[in-house]
Write a protein that binds this DNA or RNA. Structure first.
Lengths: 253, 253
DNA sequence: CCAAAAGTGTTATGTCTACACCCATGA
DNA sequence: TCATGGGTGTAGACATAACACTTTTGG
């Protein structure tokens, strides 16, 4: 068959009959830490198909906006958060039949936020909630469309980003303790890390976390008050902590 | 505004007026090694817009095929290769105006092939050629649409894949020498690697390359005949060679 | 004073780098 | 036998993991 380039054939004008029309949507997997456990924000669909089923938030791309802008808009509409700590495209999904009614290609984004404000269901969603990521990973909770696969891919992406970029600080507040930051790695990788070695690895990597000089209150059970840090410049080529080998991975909690 | 999920609102049937229509295309960045240099396969456009400009091959997604199938089909139509050594989606591009005539969202794939057969221009391309990746990276060669950005992203992805997966063997033949494999890393990362340490790292990683027992002919200038290997199982979690640190990176050739 | 959590020191082990040296071939 | 490229050995630098020990708090 013929060689084609990414634009359609007609040399002038726009002829809709020349190519199949698709709806393009942007879906956002919103991750956050809550009580030391990774959670995903889901909405309950208020309309067919999959009425009453949980799904990840999303919506149509508008012709005048970029994909990134569409993702930012969806996130804002859903959570009120204006700028996520992280918002990264990680995949496109276009299997025939993924939407029973028409041809839909969706571009999926991973968003990480520090804290979800009020969860308010919008007009076509009847509920919104944070659910533990594990419920989706082990199939306990069914999702609409191919959203279970999309969430799995998003979490796998987060695992890689944790190793390769500064994503970890996106999960914690503007100031944080070493224990809080360590919890992010432990929850997402499902491993236990040595607190002493973790601290050294993070602090020694220059400019990655910045000590504030202040200290947090110890818990009610006592203990030395921990130092508070704030995020430094996010590095691009390799984070301070790398996925740990055999032994650490085996002794999962 | 309202919370939306990835499907359109109407509870029944399909109403094109309810959402903006997009053309969805699949573009493939085809990489191959030639004379120790990374090359990209380009086609010269035979029609407006960008007539006479070089572009990466691509075409419309069909409603009945998946995105992966569309990419496979485009690759086959372009190169005659039925199964690339590697074919991975790496991004979606949908900036308004990226195609001057209409709304096009393209899903981009990275393909790696061992050897390009006959380069034959198809019906709407007037020429096809392998060009060094460097010409695109440094802006020497202009590409149609936003294809320069797409190629840059593809190469960055290849750099990461090299570190994280078995992609390196995709560039070489079914049997290969250590020098050939090392050249892949050196060309894509732009570094020089110590042959002794490279060999050890690759061979010691169990099952990643398999010695065939045979040896290749030495070059015309003599030298000990090198062992021939074939690719083992591709690993998923971390390749044998990691991006080298300061010193190695600095002394680029 | 004791328990608990944070933070520091120390040591054994493993990995990576650089480079010296040996091997097998063509001319 | 010399030049050329392939393959092996090895010592020092560096990174990592494990865990003992000290610090600072609440009760």
């Amino acid at each position: 068959m013929s060689t084609r380039t990414s634009a359609p054939d007609p040399p002038s004008g726009y002829d809709p009959a020349q190519f199949p029309a698709f709806a393009v949507t942007v879906d956002v997997v919103i991750l956050t830490m809550s009580a030391g456990v990774l959670h995903v924000l889901l909405v309950k669909r208020g309309e067919a198909p999959f009425e009453g089923t949980w799904a990840i938030p999303g919506g149509f791309k508008r012709p005048a906006e970029t994909l990134d802008e569409a993702a930012k808009r969806e996130l804002r509409e859903e959570t009120g958060v204006d700028a996520a700590s992280l918002l990264a495209q990680f995949g496109a999904y276009g299997d025939p039949g993924r939407d029973p009614r028409m041809n839909v290609v969706t571009v999926a984004y991973l968003a990480v936020i520090r804290d979800v404000g009020e969860l308010e269901a919008g007009s076509d969603a009847i509920d919104a909630a944070l659910v533990p990521a594990s419920e989706i990973l082990n199939g306990e909770r069914e999702l609409a469309f191919d959203h279970a696969r999309i969430v799995r891919d998003a979490i796998e992406r987060a695992r890689v980003e944790l190793e390769v970029s500064g994503i970890a600080t996106a999960f914690v507040g503007t100031t944080f303790t070493m224990a809080e930051l360590r919890t992010v790695y432990e929850a997402i990788w499902g491993v236990q890390l040595d607190a002493a070695n973790f601290r050294r690895a993070v602090v020694s990597e220059d400019g990655w976390v910045i000590p504030t000089g202040r200290r947090a209150q110890p818990g009610s059970s006592g203990g030395r008050p921990p130092e508070l840090f704030r995020a430094g410049r996010a590095w691009d080529h390799g984070g301070p902590i790398h996925r740990l080998h055999q032994r650490a991975q085996e002794r999962k909690t």
